[in-house]
């Protein structure tokens, strides 16, 4: 399967999302609803995307954008799967059962953003201490120990 066939397949499977799927620099982007994330991820894995490169999140203000990057060694392609979750009920299905690589990466996202991954076997803080208060990479994170850098660019 090459990248064009892949695009056709994904566009037919997710018709409402077709315009969001673009292949640029060999990287595709697929925007899915948070309830369909696990389904889409499992679909991609069956299509030959055997590596989970990255799981991260971006705080866009009112909600979190979760970014997954899956890679296929066979097709020499990488696809971003993006989804959005609400800020007050930040929770999403874990993809740990598809790629074990998600184990630590989802723990890191939980540690930094406080997004709960349902079905994760061991969701604890990974980089910060267990008694840390707050989620540092959220834009509204407050900590009196931070000294803001003077603005002199």
């Amino acid at each position: 399967m090459n990248i064009d066939e892949l695009r056709e397949h994904l566009c037919s499977t997710y018709p409402d999302l077709c315009p969001l799927f673009s292949v640029e620099y060999g990287d595709g982007m697929l925007m899915v609803d948070s309830s369909r994330l696990h389904e889409a991820a499992s679909d991609l894995r069956d299509l030959g995307f055997d590596r989970l490169g990255m799981v991260t999140a971006v705080d866009t203000g009112d909600e979190f954008e979760l970014v997954y990057r899956v890679q296929s060694r066979e097709m020499h392609a990488g696809i971003f799967v993006k989804t959005r979750v609400a800020r007050d009920v930040a929770s999403i299905a874990s993809v740990n059962d598809l790629w074990p690589a998600a184990n630590w990466q989802e723990r890191e996202v939980f540690d930094m953003f406080g997004i709960v991954f349902e079905g994760h076997p061991d969701l604890r803080r990974i980089l910060l201490t267990d008694d840390w208060v707050g989620y540092p990479l959220r834009k509204d994170y407050e900590d009196e120990r931070i000294i803001r850098r003077p603005d002199y660019i």
Partner: peptide
């Protein structure tokens, strides 16, 4: 002029797992 978010996909992190 500042990045809104920077994420480093660290190979050593995944290898250590």
């Amino acid at each position: 002029p500042r990045p809104y978010r920077m994420k480093v996909r660290s190979p050593a992190f995944c290898n250590l797992a």
